[in-house]
C-alpha cells in the first residue's frame, strides 16, 4: 500500500496489510500528497478527488478544443502566408492539448466518448473566454498575448499537480504554450507600431479581451467553491486572486511597451505593496457567459456538433477498414 510515504520505519511492515477503512486510506492518501508524491491512476484515491479531477481535466480539454474556433476563424484570412502557417500551427497545438488532456482524464476511468458527449450536449463547461467573438485580426494577437498568457499563468503551477498524468500533460502543454503567447504579442507589436488605423485596431482588441482575460482566473477567492479542498489535495497551488494579481503585474508593463492603454481607469501601481491595484470585475457578465448567454456560446457548440456529425463517415470508414484488415489477417474472411 502507500508505505513509501508513511512507513518510514520500514522493515517491520511484513505483517499483511489489513483491509483498511476509508478514513485510514484517506489519511494515507493525504500523507502521500503532503509529501509531494504523485498519485498515479491505479493508486487508491478519494472518490471526490477523482470526480474533481475528471471535472477539471475534462473542462480543460473541452476548452482547448473549443478554443480552436475563435482563432480558426482567421486562418483563411491571415494577412500573410507566414502568419497563416503560424496560426495553423497554433490551432493544431490546441487540438493536441485537448488530446493530451482527454487521455489524462481517461486514466481516471471515464471514456473519451462520454466526455465528448457531455461537451456536445451542453452538459459540460469550458472556459468562458471562448464565447467571445474575434471580429478583427488584432483579436488573434490579443488572444495569444492575453488569453494564452493567462492560461500559462494558470497552467504552470498545474505541472506540479498531485495527479501524475495531469501534471505530465501540463508539462507538455506549457512547453508549447510559450510560442502561442509570443506569436500573439508579435502580432500586437506589429499593429501597435504600424499605421494609426492598425494601432487603433490593436487598442480595440485589448479593450475587448482585457476583462474577459482577468475573468479566466475564476471567481474571487471568497466565492470560490472548490478552492480550499483543491489546494489541500495539491491539484491547485495558488488561489484565483493570487494568479490574477500576478497576471496583471506581468501584463501591464507589456501593454505599456506597446503604448496601448489597459481599459481600467482604476489601474494604478501600489508602491508600498509592489503590485498593481485594479478595478472591480463585472462578475455578472462572467456568470451570464458561463450560463450560456455569452456572445458566441450557441455558435461554438453548433460548430462542434457540426464537426462531429460531418466527421462521422470518416470514423465509420476507418472502423470498417480496421475490422476488414483484422478479419483478413486472422484468416476469417
Amino acid at each position: 500500500m502507500y508505505t513509501q510515504a508513511l512507513d518510514t520505519q520500514g522493515l517491520d511492515s511484513a505483517a499483511p496489510e489489513v483491509p483498511a477503512d476509508e478514513a485510514l486510506l484517506e489519511r494515507r492518501f493525504q500523507a502521500k500528497v503532503d509529501a509531494e508524491q504523485k498519485i498515479e491512476p491505479k493508486d487508491w484515491m478519494p472518490a471526490r478527488y477523482r470526480s474533481t479531477l475528471i471535472r477539471q481535466i475534462s473542462q480543460h480539454a473541452h476548452s482547448e478544443i473549443v478554443g480552436m474556433l475563435p482563432e480558426g476563424n482567421w486562418i483563411t484570412r491571415a494577412p500573410t502566408l507566414l502568419r497563416k502557417a503560424i496560426l495553423i500551427a497554433k490551432v493544431q497545438d490546441e487540438g493536441g492539448h485537448g488530446a493530451y488532456l482527454y487521455s489524462a482524464a481517461e486514466t481516471l476511468g471515464v471514456s473519451r466518448d462520454a466526455l465528448i458527449d457531455q461537451l456536445l450536449s451542453g452538459a459540460a463547461k469550458y472556459s468562458s473566454i471562448f464565447n467571445y467573438p474575434t471580429p478583427t485580426w488584432a483579436d488573434v494577437g490579443a488572444i495569444g498575448w492575453l488569453v494564452d498568457g493567462a492560461a500559462i499563468m494558470n497552467q504552470i503551477p498545474l505541472c506540479r499537480c498531485s495527479y501524475g498524468p495531469y501534471a505530465r500533460a501540463m508539462v507538455r502543454v506549457c512547453r508549447e504554450e510559450s510560442f502561442h503567447q509570443r506569436q500573439g504579442y508579435d502580432i500586437m507589436m506589429r499593429l501597435a507600431q504600424g499605421q494609426p488605423a492598425q494601432k487603433r485596431m490593436a487598442q480595440q482588441a485589448l479593450d475587448r479581451w482585457w476583462w474577459p482575460a482577468l475573468m479566466m482566473f475564476g471567481p474571487p477567492d471568497a466565492d470560490s467553491t472548490h478552492g480550499a479542498q483543491s489546494q489541500r489535495w495539491k491539484i491547485k497551488r495558488f488561489s484565483n486572486d493570487e494568479l490574477r494579481q500576478k497576471f496583471v503585474d506581468f501584463t501591464v508593463p507589456q501593454a505599456r511597451f506597446l503604448d496601448l492603454a489597459v481599459p481600467d481607469p482604476q489601474l494604478r501601481w501600489n508602491e508600498a505593496e509592489q503590485r498593481h491595484e485594479f478595478g472591480a470585475i463585472d462578475w455578472t457578465e462572467f456568470n451570464e457567459v458561463l450560463k450560456g448567454h455569452g456572445p458566441c456560446n450557441a455558435e461554438r457548440l453548433a460548430a462542434r456538433r457540426a464537426a462531429q456529425a460531418e466527421g462521422a463517415w470518416v470514423r465509420e470508414a476507418a472502423t470498417a477498414y480496421a475490422e476488414k484488415q483484422w478479419a483478413t489477417s486472422s484468416g476469417k474472411t
Binding site: 500551427a89 493544431q92 488530446a99 493530451y100 487521455s103 500533460a169 480496421a322
Partner: peptide
C-alpha cells in the same frame, strides 16, 4: 513513454502519434 491515443489500428496509431507527439 509520452502518452496515449485512440486509433483503429497500429498504423493509424503511428500516424496519430506522429501528429500528436512529434510536432517539434
Amino acid at each position: 513513454h509520452v502518452g496515449s491515443l485512440h486509433a483503429t489500428d497500429a498504423r493509424m496509431a503511428i500516424e496519430h502519434a506522429r501528429d500528436l507527439y512529434t510536432r517539434r
